Deep mutational scan, measured.
Amino acid sequence: MDLSALRVEEVQNVINAMQKILECPICLELIKEPVSTKCDHIFCKFCMLKLLNQKKGPSQCPLCKNDITKRSLQESTRFSQLVEELLKIICAFQLDTGLEYANSYNFAKKENNSPEHLKDEVSIIQSMGYRNRAKRLLQSEPENPSLQETSLSVQLSNLGTVRTLRTKQRIQPQKTSVYIELGSDSSEDTVNKATYCSVGDQELLQITPQGTRDEISLDSAKKAACEFSETDVTNTEHHQPSNNDLNTTEKRAAERHPEKYQGSSVSNLHVEPCGTNTHASSLQHENSSLLLTKDRMNVEKAEFCNKSKQPGLARSQHNRWAGSKETCNDRRTPSTEKKVDLNADPLCERKEWNKQKLPCSENPRDTEDVPWITLNSSIQKVNEWFSRSDELLGSDDSHDGESESNAKVADVLDVLNEVDEYSGSSEKIDLLASDPHEALICKSERVHSKSVESNIEDKIFGKTYRKKASLPNLSHVTENLIIGAFVTEPQIIQERPLTNKLKRKRRPTSGL
């Protein structure tokens, strides 16, 4: 017993010596996670971090007073192994002897410093981030199933929210409404489509400006004509009531908005009720001829604005009016007729031209339509002016008669200019590109209106002035400009410049 007691005391002394060697000089306990400095002193990692955080910048070693920084600290694995072995020896000594260790306080702390507990403390002390800490805590505590279930439920809930957000973003663009038309193969669909197009076009005519009305009406008319041609002859009974509906809707729209509806009346003529396609083609032919005449008058307007600064050229074209007008009339009417003589009366030419125009518009179905009313009214106005011209010709002399006839021709041009508003800008460009020769010939008609105004002003003063002067240069210039014009009389060319000069002198006297 005595020997055993001596041996136990010796073992205890050895353990105490080893414990003092492996103590931390700051906390005076076994080193936890030993860290060595540049001066080869060993301290606990937790104690050194606490010391360095007390001051900004480098701190001093507690043993040798040298500078220490966080970067200079290094882990010493050898001392950590020695500490672990010492703890194992102490545990074995207690089991063999059955005696508690003399320094129970220190031993209890040593026992608490088992490797499992050290790992837990290291995970908390090290600044490795929240995710690494959570992982280490889960690994160190596998015995708690409640914690695992809560963490898994949190992760699953987070994943569910992310997935639901993604699915919502994908589903939202798919919620856009999609309209699908289910059509049938019955023959009544074509008639319904035609009526739908006509009503939609009328609404567009009321909303859209004048520049786009003609294009819309032309497209709708083409669509309706194609649909009529596709149907068989057996379905004509269905077409006639639908066309009557079209007429009623167009008349109502014309009564409500007459000014807006006139812009599309000329282009919509071939959508009118037709028994066969031949009647629609004839109407299209007549409309094309009318559009040609209207576009020519538009060309004359532009030329008149350009040549208004040259009064000499405008005056020299006075007698070329009849010849150029004959050529335009021959090209406007498709019928083959002989040219009228140069010395014939211009009023007779106008009456013949009106007689040619009237039969074209005397179809029984055309008179029933609303768009032809505008053309009939313009023709009636022309006839009224010609009836007035006959009365004026009986009273005035030959020279005054010529000037009045020219004035009436200008009035006719004004009437025809009203129809110019109905034609589109695209048709003007096509006419100029296809028929430049006709445009040059028809330019002379509009330029002549300037000389007509001068004659009217001469009649106000009650006299006409003449001068025997020749202007050969002007006649040559005008002959080169206009290709299809005829030779003019030299006496009238000489008379016109004198009248304008005298007018300039006598205007201030009349004002006084």
Rank of each mutant, 00 (worst) to 15 (best):
L3F: 14
L3R: 07
S4R: 10
A5R: 11
A5T: 14
L6V: 11
L6E: 12
R7C: 12
R7P: 09
R7K: 12
V8S: 15
E9T: 00
E9R: 06
E9A: 12
E10A: 15
E10T: 13
E10I: 14
V14E: 04
I15V: 05
I15E: 01
N16S: 13
N16I: 04
A17M: 15
A17W: 07
M18C: 01
M18G: 00
M18Y: 07
M18E: 00
Q19V: 14
Q19S: 13
K20S: 10
K20Y: 14
K20V: 11
I21K: 07
I21S: 05
L22E: 00
L22C: 03
E23L: 04
P25T: 02
P25R: 13
I26E: 09
C27V: 00
E29H: 02
E29A: 14
L30I: 11
L30G: 14
L30D: 10
I31Y: 05
I31M: 13
K32D: 00
E33I: 09
E33C: 01
V35Y: 13
T37M: 00
K38G: 13
C39G: 00
H41Y: 00
H41W: 01
H41P: 00
F43A: 11
F43L: 00
C44T: 00
C44K: 01
C44V: 00
C44S: 00
C44E: 00
K45R: 08
K45G: 08
K45T: 13
K50P: 13
K50E: 15
K50S: 13
K50V: 13
L51Q: 10
L52P: 15
L52H: 01
N53C: 11
N53V: 12
N53K: 10
N53R: 05
Q54L: 13
Q54G: 11
Q54W: 08
Q54P: 14
K55M: 07
K55W: 10
K55L: 13
K55R: 11
K56V: 09
K56T: 03
G57T: 02
P58T: 09
P58L: 15
P58V: 12
P58E: 15
P58S: 04
Q60M: 11
Q60L: 12
Q60S: 14
C61V: 00
L63E: 15
N66R: 06
D67G: 13
I68D: 01
T69D: 02
K70F: 05
K70E: 05
K70N: 06
R71G: 15
R71P: 15
S72C: 14
L73P: 14
L73F: 15
E75Q: 02
E75G: 11
T77V: 12
F79H: 15
F79M: 08
S80F: 12
Q81D: 15
L82G: 01
E84D: 01
E84A: 07
E85S: 12
I89Q: 11
I89L: 14
I89A: 10
I89W: 01
I89M: 14
I90S: 02
C91F: 15
A92V: 02
A92S: 12
A92T: 03
A92G: 04
A92M: 03
A92Y: 00
F93M: 00
F93T: 03
Q94R: 04
L95T: 15
L95M: 10
T97K: 01
T97S: 02
G98N: 00
G98T: 04
G98F: 15
L99C: 12
L99V: 08
L99D: 02
L99P: 01
L99R: 07
E100G: 06
E100R: 08
E100W: 06
Y101K: 06
A102T: 10
A102L: 06
N103W: 08
N103M: 08
N103A: 10
N103Y: 02
S104A: 11
S104D: 13
S104R: 06
Y105F: 05
N106L: 11
N106C: 04
N106V: 05
N106G: 09
N106R: 09
F107K: 14
F107Y: 00
F107A: 13
A108G: 09
A108Q: 08
A108L: 09
A108M: 06
K110R: 02
K110E: 13
K110H: 14
E111S: 07
N113Q: 10
S114T: 11
S114H: 02
P115E: 14
P115M: 04
P115S: 06
P115K: 10
E116I: 12
E116G: 07
E116R: 10
H117G: 10
H117I: 10
L118G: 08
L118V: 07
D120R: 05
D120F: 03
D120A: 06
D120S: 05
E121N: 07
E121K: 08
E121V: 02
V122W: 01
S123K: 05
S123Q: 06
S123M: 14
I124G: 05
I125A: 06
Q126E: 06
S127P: 14
S127Y: 03
M128F: 07
M128C: 09
M128P: 10
M128E: 02
M128Q: 15
G129I: 13
G129L: 05
G129N: 06
Y130F: 12
Y130M: 08
Y130N: 03
R131E: 11
R131V: 12
N132P: 09
R133W: 07
R133A: 10
A134L: 04
K135D: 11
K135T: 11
L137E: 07
L137M: 02
L137D: 15
L138C: 13
L138K: 14
L138T: 03
L138H: 13
Q139S: 03
Q139K: 11
S140D: 10
E141D: 03
P142Q: 10
E143Y: 09
E143T: 11
N144P: 12
P145D: 04
P145R: 03
S146W: 06
Q148R: 09
Q148P: 03
T150F: 14
T150W: 02
T150N: 14
S151N: 05
S151W: 12
S151I: 12
L152G: 08
L152P: 06
S153A: 03
V154M: 04
V154Q: 05
V154R: 05
Q155R: 09
L156I: 02
N158Y: 14
L159G: 10
L159A: 12
G160L: 11
T161V: 05
V162A: 09
V162D: 03
V162Q: 10
V162W: 03
R163F: 11
R163N: 11
R163V: 11
T164D: 10
L165S: 09
L165M: 06
L165E: 13
L165H: 07
R166P: 10
T167Q: 11
K168V: 09
K168P: 13
K168M: 02
Q169D: 02
Q169K: 14
Q169W: 14
Q169S: 12
Q169P: 12
R170D: 13
I171H: 14
I171G: 08
I171C: 03
I171T: 10
Q172F: 01
Q172A: 04
P173E: 12
P173D: 07
P173L: 11
Q174T: 06
K175G: 07
K175H: 04
T176Y: 09
T176G: 09
T176D: 10
S177A: 08
S177E: 08
S177L: 05
S177R: 08
S177Q: 14
V178T: 13
V178D: 05
Y179H: 14
E181S: 08
G183K: 14
G183A: 10
S184W: 10
S184K: 11
S184Q: 12
S184D: 13
D185A: 07
D185V: 08
D185G: 09
S186L: 04
S186C: 06
E188D: 04
E188Y: 03
E188L: 09
E188H: 10
D189H: 15
D189T: 02
D189Q: 05
D189F: 08
V191I: 10
S220K: 10
A225N: 15
T231G: 00
H239A: 00
G263V: 13
K294G: 02
